[in-house]
Amino acid sequence: MNASAYELLASLARYWFIALALFIAVRLVVAVLREMRIEWRVQREISEAGTGINATLVLLSDEDGRLRRGKLYPVEGETTVGAAPRCDVRISSRSLRGVHCILAMEREGLRVVPVGEAFVVVDGEVVERRALAHDGSTIQLGGLVFRLRLEEENAL
């Protein structure tokens, strides 16, 4: 192919490239927006139907005696528990650290991870790295003792 023929071809091809690029851009934006709507619908359906397990900490005792016995603390997804305002579950107790522990729902039960040197006991055993708590387990955070209640969401 001689130079002038290539020049003509390349000059024409640039409009083809632009048409393809614009087509890609428009189709992708439309498809991504549609996908986002579907994802939002799925998330809504999951939350409406209730799929997971509801975890609740029921306060059994407080060594300071300031908190009401039987008070409920719901645990949703991955939850930080402590005395600091930035915690998901904030409990005003001198025996708790700023961020005392992280709780997360897993298939097998509730994962309890103490933060730093925080004092955490699950079913009578001091937790150093992580522990798994089940329905009815006793969880002690500092001077607070809780009973873990696991219930199926929207139980039939």
């Binding site: 890609i24 189709r27 992708l28 579907i38």
Partner: peptide, 18 residues
């Protein structure tokens, strides 16, 4: 199948042509 990606075959075709 709603959980999976919707068809993006046209985009794929345009990219391949490019």
């Amino acid at each position: 199948k709603d959980l999976k990606m919707p068809e993006t075959d046209w985009v794929l075709l345009a990219m391949a042509l490019f």
